[in-house]
Write a protein that binds this DNA or RNA. Structure first.
Length: 646
DNA sequence: TTAGGGTTAG
């Protein structure tokens, strides 16, 4: 015993082994380990086994366990739990199962906490059904047993079972704790359930737990209930960084960059330092509101976490979505590790910014690097084809998806194909494709076709496509607007008015067009005819000057983009104050000549504003970049990167 | 022995 003590660096188990009782059903004896000198005596076997478990010597511990088994002896629960943890760490499933069998052998009834370890082991091995079987056979279940199962169901996206288990647990009289609530909240699929759980959390006095708080903020954000999340956050007296990250992330992911960045400033004032998660959300906020200058500033902090893949991917996306491909490319080249998301971000970035060939070249390179594309990569590839009129290539990639990469085309890929054919004017092929699609077309598919009908003035097909959209989504404003636009373009004013009347009757409202621009780290937003800006007069004067100048260069307002049947002068006036024109004028007044003017628009840019931007870029010798709802337009020297193919 | 945040498309 003395010799053994000297050789073991961690004596804690010995005190446990020597004091624990040994159970031997064959002899019905309980022995004190320290009294036995014989190496094969039960207590020495137990001692040896316990030592090996704590030493994490898996192979020898399993042999020692077999000796225990043959002597009908059991060791203490803590030794077994160490062994189970060791099996989990080494991914030793078969050994884990042997431990399970041994623990239950000879009529031995393990303590609940030991069975919980086994439950956890099966779950970590991905054997949820085995865990469930064991759970059902447990003589007694405590809150940890229930929470382990609830958490497993939540993580396995089996929300219904997770919630069912919560109810069963409460019926058995077991009270949920903070672990239970923070797990089960992620399984909530109804706002009502979230509110009920929120009430229970308050009743149990668990709302101040940081895990519960961040789980509540996250789930409210997932349901778009940002103010409820903020209320939970604001009630916090002491919090941690993850709770701050949750609240910042919830606004960033819901495209409310103002509040996300405001909270980020508050976090810094409260004395917290950003980590990778914080910076990822801040970059996302910069991305949604096209704040390149701020994004560049964040880039400086990202360098501290250069090995963080998620953060670096967010950085790439920020540069791409701010229309700065040089920044994206240089960050991409410097990354020490790149995954399928890094490549997909770049492919989509090139495609959306009008560099389809570069996107496809990158796709080839990605495969050379041995990275397997996923279904989102293929959306980017098909987008590149459709926006460059590469019909043959598009067909090739679409048909090769399943064959080469095992990706079954889904609705979004089919939508890209409809777009590809529609944009290329192959409307007959597009409708044939829709009718032959394996997945049923949704409203987006039909709206894609409707958009192509507008470009190619096919009113009959447009009416049919609009009808399909409105059958699926009766309140889809886009369908009404597109159809009304198509009729207006063809001077069928009565039909256009009829569509707008139906729209009004059904209470459908058009989302107002809005454009944003960042100047001196401040975001300025404009809506059509906006006169509320403090510099409205200056902007109006600048706009008049620009229109006069481009008119001399041949600009004629394209009144096809005005929906109403009004006099030409009025139509021109209506076009003049489109939000993107106001933002361009504001950008010209307030930014330095060397920097491009970057604008974001919530809807698609209109054809007249597109022409306006091209001519202004030429006459003012400025680069203008507009990100609309679908893609980017880089205006330079009187041309656009989209080659007018939008 | 059970729990939390951040990345790609349409």
């Amino acid at each position: 015993m003395k010799t053994l003590l000297k050789t073991i660096p961690q004596p804690s188990f010995l005190s446990f082994a020597s004091s624990s009782l040994l159970y031997s059903p064959s002899s019905s004896l309980h022995l004190q380990a320290q009294t036995i000198q014989n190496p094969s005596s039960p207590s020495n076997l137990v001692e040896n086994f316990t030592r090996l478990c704590y030493q994490r010597d898996l192979t020898n511990a399993i042999s020692a366990m077999n000796s225990l088994q043959s002597h009908h002896v059991h060791a203490g629960s803590l030794a077994y739990s160490e062994l189970i943890k060791c099996c989990v760490d080494r991914r030793a499933i078969n050994h884990g199962k042997m431990v399970h069998l041994h623990i239950f052998s000879n009529g031995y009834v393990p303590e609940t906490f030991l069975i919980n370890h086994l439950l956890n082991m099966y779950i970590k091995f991905g054997l949820l059904d085995e865990a469930r079987k064991l759970f059902d056979e447990m003589p007694e279940r405590n809150v940890v047993s229930w929470t382990t199962m609830i958490s497993a169901y939540t993580n396995g996206n089996r929300s219904e079972e997770a919630l069912k288990f919560l109810i069963l647990m409460q019926r058995e009289g077991v009270r949920a704790n903070m672990f239970t609530f923070s797990s089960v909240l992620r399984s909530c699929d109804r706002l009502r359930t979230i509110r009920q759980l929120h009430c229970s959390i308050i009743k149990c006095g668990l709302e101040s737990d940081v895990f519960v708080r961040s789980a509540l903020i996250d789930i409210y954000a997932k349901w778009g209930e940002l103010d409820n999340g903020l209320r939970v956050f604001d009630e916090m007296v002491t919090g941690d960084l993850i709770v701050w990250n949750s609240i910042i992330g919830s606004f960033a992911q819901n495209s409310d960059s103002d509040r996300a960045l405001h909270l980020f400033k508050r976090m810094k004032r409260a004395g917290f330092s950003s980590n990778q998660g914080t910076l990822t959300s801040v970059l996302r906020a910069c991305t949604v509101s096209v704040q390149l200058d701020l994004g560049r500033q964040v880039h400086g902090h990202v360098l501290k976490f250069e090995s963080d893949l998620i953060l670096n991917n967010a950085l790439l996306d920020m540069y791409c979505k701010c229309g700065n491909l040089e920044g994206a490319n240089s960050a991409f080249m410097r990354m020490s590790e790149r995954d399928v998301i890094s490549w997909t971000t770049m492919i989509a970035g090139f495609a959306q910014n009008g560099h389809s060939q570069e996107a496809l070249r990158l796709f080839g390179l990605m495969k050379d690097f041995g990275i397997r594309p996923n279904h989102i990569t293929m959306v980017g590839v098909l987008f590149a084809c459709s926006h460059a009129g590469l019909v043959e290539d598009g067909w090739y990639y679409f048909q090769s998806m399943k064959k080469l990469y095992g990706i079954v085309p889904q609705r979004e890929h089919c939508g890209c194909m409809v777009d590809l054919l529609g944009r290329a004017g192959k409307l007959d092929e597009a409708i044939k494709f829709i009718h032959e699609m394996e997945c049923a077309p949704d409203a987006v598919t039909w709206k894609t076709l409707l958009g192509a009908c507008r470009v190619y003035h096919n009113m009959d097909l447009a009416a049919y496509a609009a009808e399909q959209v409105l059958q699926l989504e009766p309140h889809d404003e886009g369908a009404y607007i597109l159809l009304s636009n198509i009729y207006a373009n063809s001077r069928r004013w009565e039909d256009a008015e009829e569509v707008r009347k139906t729209m009004r009757e059904r209470g459908v409202r058009k989302e107002p067009g809005c454009s944003w621009i960042e100047v001196d780290r401040q975001i300025h937003a404009f809506v059509r005819g906006d006169k509320s800006h403090p510099h409205a007069d200056k902007i109006s004067k600048e706009l008049n000057r620009l229109i006069q100048r481009i008119t001399e260069a041949g600009y004629v307002p394209d009144t096809n983009f005005v929906l109403q049947d009004i006099e030409r002068e009025q139509k021109e006036d209506s076009l003049r104050y489109h939000s993107e024109k106001l933002a361009i004028a504001f950008g010209l007044i307030h930014s330095i000549k060397e920097k491009p003017i970057r604008i974001m628009k919530n809807l698609r840019i209109c054809g007249d504003c597109h022409t306006f931007a091209k001519l202004v870029a030429k006459t003012e010798n400025r680069n203008i970049i507009i990100r609309d709802a679908i893609r980017f337009h880089h205006f330079k020297d009187g041309a656009c990167s989209c080659a007018d193919y939008w």
